[in-house]
Amino acid sequence: MAQEQPQGQAQEPDIFDRMAAQAAGVEPPQPLSKEELPALAERALSAQNASKTPPNVRQALQFLLAHGWIESATKPKLFQLIAAHTTLLDALLEPLDLRVLVDDVRGLAFLAVVPGYAGDDTDESEQDDWTHPLMKRQRLTLEQSLLLALLRREFLQREQESGTGAVVRVTVDSLLPQLETYLGSTGSDMQERKRLTQLLENLRTHGMVSEVDAQDCITIRPMIVHLLNPENLQTLLLRLRALAEQGGAQGSAGNAEGTP
């Protein structure tokens, strides 16, 4: 009568298995000992973990997804990690239609929607409603866009003087006359400063400037160069021209109505 094999024990190969293995020139399989089982499980776990994203790269990717950009001035280690693993990060972001752009000179890395994003393939009537699930288009008023253009010009002028990558700081008072040139004077210094302060705060939430410090200065972020690119500047210029022509046409109509 054949004896039942106790559970939990490896079954020894019988005489027929040994004879077949010897005839084929193959050594019969040997059962694993209790000491070898933990080592085998550890090797299998190590092989599985080797295919996972490294923890530091995962941390950098999570930071980018949470904030949208990173500067080497504030997070030097994370920035260096992102700059060194751009290809890997792009592969991880590919299902999201996102990619990483790195400005090595200015020490800036940020997320951007890949060209030809499917969600952007809409009719002109639907473009105002376009959004990416993780990267929404930033909506700025005309006054905010105008101040943004003034800050960008200031940023590039300072870079030409001090070199690309230099920290650009300006005083709030120096921006007041520039903004007044385009928006006109309210007749109240307090109202004009309040208007400028509110506009700067709105731009700060978009990562374009820092908070006003104790010296009444702000730092212009390098992200401003990439957000306000030549295409966006051209759109702003056309908008300003249209408003100027509209104002001129209304003025002409008013004069005509008052003519005897």
Results as ranks from 00 to 15, higher is better:
Ala2Cys: 05
Ala2Ser: 09
Gln5Glu: 12
Gly8Pro: 02
Gly8Asn: 12
Gly8Ile: 06
Gly8Glu: 09
Glu12Phe: 09
Asp14Gln: 06
Asp14His: 07
Phe16Ala: 15
Asp17Cys: 13
Asp17Ile: 12
Met19Glu: 14
Ala21Leu: 08
Ala21Lys: 04
Gln22Tyr: 05
Ala24Gly: 07
Glu27His: 02
Pro31Cys: 10
Leu32Asn: 03
Glu36Ala: 14
Leu37Ile: 15
Pro38Gln: 07
Ala39Arg: 10
Leu40Thr: 02
Leu45Tyr: 08
Ala50Gly: 02
Arg58His: 13
Gln59Ile: 08
Gln59Leu: 14
Gln59Lys: 15
Ala60Asp: 12
Phe63Pro: 01
Thr74Pro: 04
Thr74Tyr: 07
Lys77Ala: 15
Gln80Arg: 10
Leu81Cys: 12
His85Leu: 08
Thr86Tyr: 00
Thr86Val: 15
Ala91Arg: 12
Ala91Tyr: 07
Leu92Glu: 11
Leu93Ile: 05
Glu94Cys: 00
Leu98Phe: 00
Asp104Val: 12
Phe110Ser: 02
Val113Met: 06
Val114Gln: 09
Gly119Arg: 10
Asp123Ser: 15
Glu124Lys: 09
Glu126Met: 08
Gln127Pro: 01
Trp130Val: 15
Thr131Arg: 13
Arg137Trp: 02
Gln138Ser: 09
Gln138Gly: 09
Gln144Phe: 00
Leu146Ser: 00
Leu146Arg: 03
Leu146Cys: 02
Leu147Glu: 01
Leu147Thr: 03
Leu150Ala: 06
Glu154Ala: 15
Glu154Thr: 15
Gln157Gly: 13
Glu159Gln: 15
Gln160Arg: 12
Ser162Pro: 04
Gly165Lys: 02
Val167Leu: 08
Asp173Pro: 02
Asp173Phe: 00
Ser174Phe: 07
Gln178Asp: 05
Gln178Thr: 02
Tyr182Gly: 04
Gly187Phe: 04
Ser188Tyr: 07
Asp189Ala: 15
Gln191Asn: 13
Gln191Pro: 02
Glu192Arg: 08
Arg193Trp: 04
Lys194His: 09
Lys194Arg: 14
Arg195Gln: 10
Arg195Asp: 06
Leu200Lys: 02
Leu200Cys: 01
Leu203Lys: 05
Leu203Pro: 03
Leu203Arg: 00
Gln215Leu: 13
Asp216Pro: 03
Arg221Gly: 04
Pro222Val: 04
Met223Asp: 01
Met223His: 00
Val225Ile: 11
Glu231Asn: 03
Asn232Glu: 12
Leu236Gly: 01
Leu237Arg: 08
Leu238Asp: 14
Ala242Trp: 07
Ala242Asp: 15
Glu245Cys: 10
Gln246Met: 08
Gln250Ile: 10
Gly251Tyr: 09
Gly254Asp: 12
Gly258Pro: 00
Thr259His: 11
Thr259Gly: 07
